[in-house]
Amino acid sequence: MARLLTDADGSPVAIENPHGSSPVVLVCEHASRRLPQDMGNLGLGPEALESHISWDPGALAVSLRMVEQLDATLFYQRFSRLVYDCNRPPEAEAAMPAVSEIYDIPGNAGLSAEQRLARTQAIYDPFRNGLADLIAARAAAGQPTVLVTMHSFTPVYHGKPRSVEVGILHDTDARLADAMLAAAAGAAFDTRRNEPYGPIDGVTHTLIEHGLKNGLLNAMIEIRNDLVSDDVGQKVMADYLVGLLGQGLASLPK
C-alpha cells in the first residue's frame, strides 16, 4: 500500500504545551485545511478548500489563546477534515465524505476499501493513538484530565441562518456541559446545549472514545465562525470560554 503522507508533509498531529499544569486538554480535530502534498486538491476549487467544509475556521486560533490563559495542553490535527475527519470512526461515511453541505468532493468519491484504510492508518490512527497516549501518560503521572474539544460552525448552513453563537455539546455525560451552561446564563453570547449539532449527528466520537471511556469530565465547544474571524474576536471568545470553563469546573465536586 502506497504511503499517503510524505516526509515533507510531517506529522499528522501536533501538541502544544504538553506539560501544562491545567487539567484541561483541548482537542482540535478540524484545526487545518492543509492537504497532503501528493493528494492534489481533491477536485475542489479555492472557495471550497478555504470554506468550513475543509476545516473549522478560528478554532485553532481560539484554542491557542486558551492554552496561554489556562496553561492547558492542546492536541490537534494538521490536515484537512476532507482527507479524514478525526471526529468520526473509520466505518462512518462522514469520516471521508463524498459530499459536504453544497459541495461534491470528487477526490473522495468511490474510495476503495484499500484507499479508506490508507487514510485511516495515516491520519486517524496517529490521532487516536496519540491522544490516548497523552491521556494515559497524564494519568500515570497523577495529573487529572478534563477533555474539551474545540470546533467552529458556519453561520449559514444549507441557506438557513443560525442564531446560536456558542454551543456546549455533550453525550451521555453532561456534568461539565451542565456546569458551563449554568455559568453561561445571562452571558453576552447566545449559548445553547447541543446546538447546532448533538449526539444524534455523530459529532461526539472523540468525547466517547477518549472522555466517556476513561471516565473523564468532557464537553465539546462549537463557536459560530463569524465571531472568531479576526484577532479581536478570537481574544474575546477565548476570554469568554476560559471564564465558562473556570466557573464550571469550580462548581463541580472535586
Rank of each mutant, 00 (worst) to 15 (best):
Q121S: 05
D7I: 10
R128K: 09
A72R: 11
A122T: 12
M39L: 15
L176A: 15
L181P: 10
H19M: 07
D231C: 09
L5C: 13
A8N: 11
E47L: 12
P36Y: 11
M150V: 11
D201H: 08
T206P: 00
Q115P: 00
I200Y: 02
A14V: 03
T120D: 03
N41Q: 12
P253D: 13
D231F: 02
R193C: 14
M220T: 10
R88T: 08
S229M: 09
A179V: 14
Q234K: 14
Q234L: 10
G43M: 06
M237P: 05
S54W: 00
Y124E: 02
L111T: 12
E47P: 03
N214D: 01
D201Y: 01
V166M: 07
V148L: 09
D178M: 07
A185I: 09
D178Y: 11
V156E: 12
S163I: 14
D190A: 13
V27N: 01
R128F: 07
V148Y: 05
A132S: 15
V99K: 08
A118S: 15
V228P: 05
N108L: 05
L169W: 00
I168Y: 04
I15A: 07
R138G: 13
S163C: 15
E101H: 13
F127W: 04
V67K: 07
L64A: 11
S22Y: 05
R81I: 02
